Computed example of a mutant assay.
Amino acid sequence: MRIALNARILQAPRTGIGQYVAELVNALRSEREVEVTLFNGWGWSSALPEAAMPGYSRLTPLLRQIPGAYQARRWLEQKRFDQGRAQNIDLYHEPSLWPLHFDGPTVITLHDLTHLHFPAAQPPARVKEIERRLEAGVAQSQRILTDSQAIADEAQAYFGLPAERFVVAPLGVAERFYPREPEAIKSVLKAHAVEAREYFLCVGTLEPRKNLNLALQAHALLPESLRQRFPLLIVGMAGWQPSQFSDQLRRGLASGHVCLLGYLADEHVAQLLAGARALVFPSLYEGFGLPVLEAMASGTPVILSRTSAMPEVAGAAGNYIEPDNADSLRDAMSRLIDDQVHWQVCQEAGLQQARRFSWKRCAQATAGAYRQALGG
């Protein structure tokens, strides 16, 4: 099967979907019947590009201000994509929301329906473009991959499609996420002035859906001595209109008990996850929740909301809280500080739960969707 996969998102810093594309492509190379060629928006390649860091493009903020910029870029990408027809493509896989036009079998990955629930989390022009194109893209696709059953069920109901059009392919864990001894991560911890297992960690783009305010509020409710001993570290890029977090963040940063680390290299994040007391992940809505899985695989307990797809990922290993209750989050954090037996139970349960997921299994399910779309 000769697959054209749209990998343009890899030109940006790798957040959730970018990590998905990179890991899936690597895992698909072990599927003997699958041959993947990557479209990068301008041309074609068989090799993954190096991960970009923030600031990779100074044009992106400008493009958001230009009327019709998304449509113009889309037109150019379609023209470039059409030039790849000579490669005798059997199937086109679009891993991010809406596909380019292709007159052969198409598979898309629908990670979530965030644009319906949290349209303010993305630039208005992008939301408008999603609304304009997504339904047609779904109709164009023979199979629709989702990261979780929760999103498959939601999308099936929203689009009014039969269940057999959907294939659930849960995400996996990259090799860099595993338990590490404090000595192995001491340089990274020292750089942020923390000790192993003596800080809480939030990972994710700074946007309303991630519910960062709840994490800040709950941490502020801890006794001052605990806030000083167990600071809250926040890793992630600023999202669309992050200014709404400014007041809350300013108070936390001024106290010295909250550290905003910004976007970090993958290995740096993996080491911080392995050293945290717990991952704090009170997100309001997720199509999967990859940091939850990565934390569990790193031997770190997770505190998370019981919403959307997250219970599918954490299972019985999760410390669940209500996403609008700062007291419940504070209590979960306190227990993981005070109750070492509970912490160890959560750690072991998380390691066992994480073993259920792998990129190999994701690739196998994805290859199965390709076969179905091709009529095999």
Rank of each mutant, 00 (worst) to 15 (best):
P119L: 10
A150R: 06
V168S: 09
P179A: 02
S255N: 06
R209P: 07
L145G: 04
A220K: 03
Q142P: 01
H117Y: 08
D153C: 13
A218V: 05
L222C: 12
R251K: 14
I130E: 11
V188I: 11
Q244C: 08
L206V: 08
E131I: 00
A174H: 01
P179G: 10
A193F: 08
V235C: 05
E135L: 03
L171I: 06
F177V: 02
Q244H: 14
L134R: 03
A163H: 12
P223T: 02
A155L: 06
T146F: 00
Q149K: 13
R229T: 09
R197M: 10
V203M: 05
S141D: 06
R251W: 11
A254T: 12
E195Y: 09
P182I: 00
A174W: 00
R180E: 04
S246Y: 05
L134Q: 11
P119M: 01
E181N: 06
M237W: 08
M237I: 10
I234L: 15
E224S: 09
G160N: 11
I130N: 09
R176Y: 00
K210G: 04
V168T: 13
R180W: 12
A193M: 09
S243T: 04
G236C: 05
G172E: 01
L189N: 12
N213I: 02
L216S: 09
Q156I: 07
Q142L: 09
L116P: 12
V188P: 05
Y178C: 05
L253P: 11
Q241M: 03
F166Y: 13
P123Q: 15
V173N: 01
L145C: 00
A220G: 10
D153I: 04
L116M: 15
L226A: 11
I234A: 15
V138H: 03
N211R: 03
A215G: 06
R251S: 12
S225D: 14
R180M: 15
R143G: 08
P242Y: 10
L253Y: 06
A215S: 00
R197Q: 02
A155I: 01
A174M: 07
F230Q: 15
K190Q: 11
L222E: 15
G239I: 10
R197W: 05
I144G: 12
Q122H: 07
P162A: 15
F200T: 09
Y158W: 15
P182C: 12
G252E: 14
E175Y: 08
K190L: 13
L206D: 10
A157C: 15
D153Y: 12
C202A: 14
F230L: 15
G172V: 03
I130F: 06
I234D: 11
S141L: 01
S246L: 04
K190D: 15
L221T: 02
I185T: 11
F200M: 01
A139S: 07
E175N: 07
Q217I: 07
R126T: 10
A136V: 08
P182F: 04
E224P: 07
E195H: 09
Q156F: 04
K186H: 14
V168P: 10
Q217Y: 00
P162M: 05
F200C: 14
V194K: 04
Q241D: 05
